[in-house]
Every structure is written in structure tokens, then in C-alpha cells.
Amino acid sequence: MTPAQEHELTLLMTASQKGDGPAYDALLRGLQAVVSLYVRRRVGVTPWAEDVVQDVLFSIHRARHTWNPQRPFAPWFYAVLQSRLVDAIRVRKRIGMWEEPMDALPPGVWSESAEAVTIARADLAEAMRQLSPAQRLVIERLKLAELSVKQVAHETGMTESNVKVIAHRGYAALRRLLLGTGYDD
């Protein structure tokens, strides 16, 4: 964070503590960029970097009354950021202790051949074809394109709750179709 950035963020935070919505929006978007860069520099590109960014923003929101406007903003902000990042790394390490990489499993535990995978993919594609066009579209955008519900709703012109309902029914239909072709629950 440069001194100019810190000065700007300090002004935005002061206004945010008074309930100024646009200032708060600008503050969070400014901090989002700083946090993303910080996380990327510390842990590289990871799938959970965005989770850390969101955690930091939540924490800043909840702790915003603890920043004293007469004190510099950066130490307060970086203390929150560092604490959330350390927590995230700790959680990922804990999860990693219980997860086995697939190639480390003993032979026989996972014995899917390339042929079996191809068959499974074909069955899934066939099951997808049997869904309604709306269900297919929503599941493809959510799971293959990895968009959020909000983004899919925006893209398709549906409401968010409609997207959720269609996706839910689509998953249930997929499950029924795959169970009917001999797959386990």
C-alpha cells in the first residue's frame, strides 16, 4: 500500500464509520485489490485466494469500529489481513493432513480405467441431454463455466431463486437418471 493509497483509504474509512455507503463501497473495492495482490504474493495463485479476500472483507466490516481515526490505517488493516491469511493457511494445512493425493492411494482402491472414465463421461453426457433445456443450461453454466448463481441469473435473464430451483431439480433428475443406469448413490 503506497502512502497515497493509505491516505485515500483512511479518508474512505473515516467516512464509512459515519455510515457513508458510496465511500464504503469504494473502500472495500480498493481493499479488495490490495488483499488480492497481498495474498497472491504470499501464497501464489491458489483456488482459495478469493475465499481469503472475502474473509478479510467480512472481518474488516465486523471490526470497523475498532479502528481509531486518529491512528494510521495501514497497521490496523494489515493486522486483520495477516490474521485472516494465517488462519486460512492453517485451515488448508489441516484439511491437507486428512486428504490423500489420488496417486498415493494403494492399488485397487481406485481402479477406474481410462475406458471406465470414458464410459462414465458418455453416460453423464447422455443424462444431461435428457434434461430440459433450462436445466441443462443452468447446470452447464454453474458447474462447467463455474459461474455464480447471480451471474447465471444475469446471463439468462432469470431470477436468482429461479436459477436455484431449476438447478436443484436438474441435479435431482441427473441423480435419478444415473441411478437408473446402474451407478451407486
Binding site: Q17, G19, Q32
Partner: peptide
Amino acid sequence: TTNDVVSALVRDLRPVVP
């Protein structure tokens, strides 16, 4: 998404006394 989070937090903003 992070944009959703920011929007939700801005909506939830209330004045605070430091």
C-alpha cells in the same frame, strides 16, 4: 462472488462509534 460480498456489506453498513 466477491462483488456479491461487497454489495452485501455495503447494504449492511451502519454508522459506528470508534
